[in-house]
Amino acid sequence: MKGKCYIQGMAAISPQHTFEGDSSAQPMVAGSSNMLSCVEPDYRTFIPANSLRRMSRMLKIGLTTALKCMQDSGIAVPGAIVTGTGKGSLQDTERFIKEIRDYEERALNPTPFIQSTYNAVNGLIALQQKCTQYNNTFVHRGFSFENALLDSMLLLHEGAENVLAGAFEEITGEHFYIKSRIGQWKSETVPNNALHEHFSPGTISGEGAAFFLLDAKPSDKSYAAIAGMKTLYKPSPEKPGTALQQFLQQHGLSMPDVDLVLTGSNADSNYDFYYDVLDGMLQLPFKHLCGEYDTASAFALWLGAKMVKEQQVPAQWFPMLQQQPAQLKNVLIYNHFFGEQHTFMLLQSI
């Protein structure tokens, strides 16, 4: 997709202190299990108590991140709302499956069913902000946020004033166990701050939400430009290399022009080889901060945009950083989800 868009506001709830205060001053949060959970804010300052009482965790995380992003951008009603989520509200899905069994299909409370629908967060954002415009939700593993971003770029191209684009994901103990049965997580316990020292099959799980207010035009407030995105579905081992060259070329760049690559490298020996195409480029991994999940690329985008805006890498989150890059003009993100859905995103300074 050609055509730039600009990040005019953003917010993230993640396993790090990314939501409140000066996130750059916050130390890295280190967990003690292979399941990273979000640092959750006090939702009452964002959501009326009467609405909050029924909401499950995913809805609160998603809605609050969206609202904070709107606040940050200074826009109350966006021109469209587009999101991505791989799994939606897992807690509600799990709860409804169990209630069907426990109450033998009788006297069921509808709330978990309603909230388990993948577009529930979108509906809530629209409802709370009274946004009657275009509204869409993508649910496709490592392409969920990517398609939301593509849709947003199309909307801006079609003339939408601005778009609220975001992603949200949660992990539950039960779902962590389910995915452990197909080997997604490391069998040994690895604290997130030591993730990259444990190269072995599997990774650590995570969760989070990130939202962006996107505009076709830049302003003084712009964090960064999203210059382009490319997705690859189940590529052959050679494909990412040639696709990366082409992607950079389309934007008038070659590998040395990229100041920094944020890589989805997650110490998973099954799929890490794809990242070899980045050899020779300055790279920093990010999944020790957020864990692995369907929409982790949204966290990477938040992180990259923050760095571009501040022209600095938050050193306390990257102990592997040897020296600050001279400049952060072109920042590339390369992420894939268990080797199946691959994404390149290019961020540029304004």
Partner: peptide, 26 residues
């Protein structure tokens, strides 16, 4: 369990690999 599984299975079976997405708005 998720919505992407059916999309990918169908895509893989007939050879669609260019751009895939799954939408869920009830």
């Amino acid at each position: 369990l998720d919505c992407a599984d059916c999309t990918q299975r169908i895509a893989d079976t007939v050879g669609l690999n260019e751009h895939i997405a799954t939408i869920s708005t009830a």
